Simulated assay, not measured.
Amino acid sequence: MNQYNDLIIKCPNPEHPNNVKLVCFDESCKADRLYCMQCSRNGIHFSHPQHQYQLPNLFDHFEKIEKECDDLINRLSRQIDLVQQSFYQLIGGIKTKYVISKEQVLNLNSKQINSILAETIQFKSFRSTIEIQIQKSSNELQDQIQKLYQDLGLNYLNYYQVNDSDIKKSEEFYQKGYKLYWYDHKYEEAITMLDQALSVNSKHQLALWCKAESLKMLDQYNEAIVWADKALHIDPKHFNSLYTKAESLRMLEQYNEAIIWVDKALQIDPKHTNSLFTKSSSLRGLGQYNEAITWADKVLQIDSKHFNSLSTKSTSLRMLKNYDEALAVIEQSLQINPNHLDSLWSKGKCLQDQNQYQEALICYDKALKIKENHQWTKDRRNECLEALKKK
């Protein structure tokens, strides 16, 4: 607080030549909150001296309100996230109940088919009911939010304007930060530069996104989400911020939430390979292997050499015990890069699951030459050696 002791602000009363010395924090007070000693001698704020503080306390107040504001926004965001999770659960249930493949029908008996048929015949009535209910709830929520926005006077806020000089200075800091992030991969240095951009213009959307992305690259996923949310508060359809948030959620193993946010990104760019991969990998994390393969194939149609998608597809096939198909996909990735660790691990596990222990050992040994202290590989290798001893 001492750094603000020399702060100079003129008294709001034009007849007083003095500078502001005191601040009033009484909620019911109608007088000017900032006032000088002459105002005090004139009896202003006399009725509530317990709420009067020295001017430097103003900044303690602003810092406290900033924290409380961030806490409120985070709580509200969590409420909306819960709504989105419930919605995703709903649409997932609808798909599970009403989308029946030919293969599924062939594995059912006549009683089960009859039950499904009865439900699907009623789908038209169900569709009408649910659309009306969701539309009504959506309209009510939007009306309530708009009313709050107007009642709080948020549409009239204009405390300050960022001048052209500040905008230019902020942009210069952002460009330096972006270069450190994109070209130099110096993420911590990038964040330092981006913070300078945001200190001049806190609404610089690309600086907010770039800071979020830099935090993600440093594996600071929770912090990355916070800054991605700040960028999305300015533009809810900013593609890169949507992807950054979705991928951070995936890395935190919050797969349902990741899918919600990556779906928003894919509505903007349906062919963005990294977003498609995020969805595929999230589905795999949820154990939805067939769906994961479908989305991995979407990536591979665009980029046949996308390592991560090849790995996701092969792992999903392995979990479905489709070993031949899994091995074919793994061989495809190994042709591109014979030292691709995920592919060596996956191939070794496929062979091990089929009791081909000698062949699996070859894969594990190759993997250990690349990453010699990888415990999972060591454990699988020992399992194969023990199995060979028992033969």
Rank of each mutant, 00 (worst) to 15 (best):
N2C: 07
Y4V: 07
D6E: 15
I9V: 13
K10N: 15
C11D: 10
P17K: 15
V20D: 08
L22C: 10
L22M: 12
V23W: 05
F25V: 13
E27P: 15
E27K: 13
S28H: 14
C29A: 14
A31V: 08
D32T: 13
C39A: 04
N42D: 11
I44S: 12
H45W: 14
S47C: 10
H51G: 06
H51T: 10
L55Q: 13
L58F: 15
D60W: 09
C69R: 10
L72S: 11
L76T: 10
R78V: 13
R78M: 12
D81G: 04
V83S: 14
V83D: 15
Q84P: 02
S86M: 15
Y88N: 06
G92D: 10
G93C: 09
S101W: 04
V105H: 00
L106Q: 13
N107V: 04
N109F: 00
S110F: 02
Q112I: 02
F123Q: 06
R127I: 01
K136W: 07
K136Q: 14
S138T: 15
N139V: 07
Q142D: 11
D143E: 14
Q144S: 12
D151Q: 08
G153C: 01
Y159D: 15
Y159N: 11
N163Y: 09
N163K: 08
E171N: 08
E172P: 00
Y174G: 01
G177N: 09
K179L: 12
Y181Q: 10
D184S: 13
E188S: 12
A190N: 02
A190I: 01
M193V: 01
D195W: 00
D195I: 06
D195P: 01
V200T: 15
S202Y: 06
K203C: 03
L206M: 13
A207I: 01
K211Y: 07
Q220W: 04
Q220V: 05
Q220L: 12
A224H: 01
I225G: 02
V226P: 00
L232T: 00
I234G: 05
I234Q: 05
P236Q: 06
K237N: 12
F239E: 13
L242K: 01
L242N: 03
E247V: 12
S248C: 09
L249S: 09
E253G: 05
I259E: 04
I259N: 06
W261G: 07
V262S: 03
D263W: 03
K264G: 07
D269Q: 13
P270L: 09
H272F: 13
N274F: 11
F277K: 04
T278R: 05
L283K: 02
Q288D: 08
A292R: 02
A296H: 00
D297Y: 03
L300N: 06
L310A: 07
K313P: 00
S316R: 02
R318C: 05
M319F: 09
L320Q: 02
N322I: 00
A326E: 03
L327C: 03
E331S: 04
Q332D: 12
L334A: 05
Q335C: 12
Q335G: 14
H340S: 08
S346R: 06
G348S: 03
G348T: 04
C350Q: 05
D353H: 04
D353G: 02
E359S: 10
E359M: 05
A360H: 00
L361H: 00
N373C: 00
K378Q: 10
R380F: 14
L385P: 01
K389G: 05
K390E: 15
